[in-house]
């Protein structure tokens, strides 16, 4: 474990590589999930849930911006990070990129629940990160994530205890294998814990996640898959392999940027002054 690192200048090459890999996952997960949440605008089943999802999407974009900002301090620009990064270099989990063509409100709720539970554990394991600019942001994000978990948890219970029960069961069956990819280790995993960027390994986080998620699903009479028997999807997302859904989404959100031929936004009056 290295001592506290207060900024980019103090990072060795190896440390920077490991840190970048951690940050890309964090940022990409949040950004892509936010894109999927925004698709629910006007489609959510109640006005309240429409507003809630809009708000959650805004939070997740905000969190993505926090993590992309840290990558920015390491030398990346916004076009490098988002608008011009080839889709096969994105490292988010396949869980967050899936589209739900047949409506899929239960899918959205189940995904939110599975993701937000993992997110809390991951953030808690970053709260004492040796990279101080990262550690400094965690408390704020955890405070905001609390509402996301409440929202997902409340809806999960409502759906699973009513006529939506079968849909929840089907969504869990479909999404659980993709959720496991949240914990798929990358080439820098050992360094990430060794350098103290994250206090727990992905394996430990996965165990803690299963210990939360499975009893909850059990309590709602939703069968949880046996983790060891889950057939993993071919694509995990973490290594740049993705489902077709991702490439369609990527084309959609980069469409305007591409159409305008890589625009430079008009500056505010004080910028660059």
């Amino acid at each position: 474990m290295t001592g506290p690192i207060s900024g980019p200048d103090e990072l060795s090459k190896r440390e920077q590589k490991a840190l970048e890999s951690l940050l890309f996952r964090l940022a990409d997960d949040e950004f892509v999930l936010a894109e999927r949440y925004t698709e629910w605008q006007i489609y959510a089943p109640t006005l309240e849930s429409d507003l809630a999802l809009a708000n959650i999407a805004q939070d997740e974009f905000g969190h993505a911006r926090l993590w992309y900002d840290l990558l920015g301090e390491l030398g990346y620009t916004e076009p490098d990070l988002i608008w011009e990064r080839p889709p096969e270099q994105w490292q988010h989990s396949t869980l967050v990129e899936l589209s739900f063509p047949d409506g899929g409100w239960a899918d959205t709720i189940v995904r939110g629940y599975l993701y937000d539970t993992a997110e809390q554990l991951r953030l808690e394991a970053l709260a004492d990160s040796s990279y101080l600019p990262l550690a400094d942001r965690i408390e704020k994000v955890l405070l905001e994530e609390r509402y996301h978990r409440q929202h997902a948890g409340n809806w999960l219970e409502r759906l699973a205890s009513g006529e939506g029960h079968d849909r929840v069961v089907a969504a869990v069956e479909r999404l659980f294998p993709h959720a496991m990819s949240l914990f798929a280790p990358g080439p820098h995993e050992d360094n990430i814990t060794e350098f103290g960027f994250r206090s727990e390994s992905l394996q430990e986080l996965r165990r803690a996640w299963l210990d939360t998620v499975i009893p909850t699903l059990d309590s709602l009479s939703v069968p949880a898959p046996e983790p060891a028997e889950v057939v993993r999807p071919d694509a995990t997302g973490r290594d740049g392999s993705h489902t077709d859904d991702w490439f369609e989404l990527y084309d959609a959100f980069t469409h305007t940027y591409t159409e305008l031929e890589n625009p430079t936004p008009v500056r505010l009056r004080g910028e660059g002054a």
Partner: peptide, 27 residues
Amino acid sequence: TYSGCPARELLTNDVKCAAETVPEIAD
């Protein structure tokens, strides 16, 4: 106030411009 504040650039720019109205402040 919250991390997803969509007025981040507007607000930080307003603060920057305000500080630069002080005659002794160049930047």
